[in-house]
Design a binder for these strands. Structure first.
Length: 273
DNA sequence: AGAAGAACCTGGTAGC
DNA sequence: TGCTACCAGGTTCTTC
């Protein structure tokens, strides 16, 4: 569910809440599927209890909680995951997979659809989690630019949309922001990526950065499940995503929905060529 | 290699 | 009201 702006919003809030704090108690749902990448899950609670949190970081859609002892607790929220700061007395419900207790509150991971992942790593060796180990550059970094896209798109017949969502090309871009970036760049998401010219790649790289910054300023986009760790919704309002049949904000013609790579996609057929 | 499609899950909702 | 079908923001695996 959450893409880069949503995970970054959660990361910033958690950094303020958790940095320097000590983990007092951990409660895990032992049968939960969110630990499927972490074979030693029965040791997780014991390993992190009593540890101090040094910092909270983000790479792509992954949250990385840095603990003393060179341990990193990695969390991915999948489609429906939420990390919420709650009162310690709040009862836990059946979708809760992990609770981390601090002196005056607890952090709970809920994930009804169980696409999320939790794992613990030593010494920043994330090779057991290929999705994290093989992430491409952060889209808001200088590395992510038209030249990088040209290198990655060259000769590729897959759609622009499909490649924008490839986490090895741009870490953290998901279905919403791939559509939105294509709209800002006035490029059809259906175009074979290898056919874009340099000018279009410049607009696309800029469109990605622009939409991510806009959404960050709005604390992300709440379509259904997403909440910040303080329980707030995100205020980002999409140009095209989820708006089939409505007016294009640029030209007023009708926004169209189609399926690209098994994912619903929206675009304006008049603005986006 | 790369492209396309299915699978992994549950919950909400649209339609009958 | 109740049932079914379909849809959902991600990742990964299989097949061609």
């Amino acid at each position: 569910m959450p893409e880069l702006p949503e995970v970054e919003t959660i990361k910033c809030q958690l950094a303020g809440r958790l940095t320097g704090r000590k983990i007092e108690k951990v409660s895990m749902a032992q049968k939960s599927l969110v630990y499927r990448d972490y074979p030693q899950k029965q040791r997780l609670a014991k390993e992190i209890t009593g540890r101090k949190i040094r910092e909270v970081n983000r790479r792509g859609k992954y949250l990385q909680v840095e603990l003393d002892g060179d341990l990193t607790l990695v969390l991915h929220l999948g489609m429906s995951g939420t990390l919420l700061v709650r009162d310690k007395s709040e009862p836990k419900d059946r979708h809760c997979h992990l609770e981390i207790y601090f002196h005056d509150f607890k952090l709970t991971l809920r994930d009804p659809r169980m696409f999320g992942r939790v794992a613990l790593f030593h010494n920043h060796d994330f090779s057991a989690m290929p999705g994290l180990a093989n992430l491409g550059p952060e889209p808001l970094s200088k590395e992510f630019n038209a030249d990088w896209l040209a290198e990655k798109f060259r000769g590729r017949k897959a759609s622009v949309k499909a490649l924008l969502m490839d986490q090895a090309i741009g870490a953290g871009i998901g279905n919403i922001y791939a559509d939105e970036a294509c709209f800002i760049a006035r490029v059809s998401p259906l175009r074979p990526a290898g056919k874009l010219n340099h000018k279009e790649l410049v607009k696309l790289a800029a469109g990605v950065k622009k939409v991510l910054k806009r959404s960050l300023a709005a604390m992300g986009c709440t379509f259904s499940d997403y909440r910040t760790s303080e329980g707030e919704t995100g205020d980002y309002r999409p140009y095209v995503y989820g708006r089939e049949g409505q007016e294009c904000p640029k030209c007023g013609s009708v926004i169209v929905k189609t399926i690209i790579g098994n994912r619903s996609s929206w675009y304006c057929p008049r603005c986006q060529k």
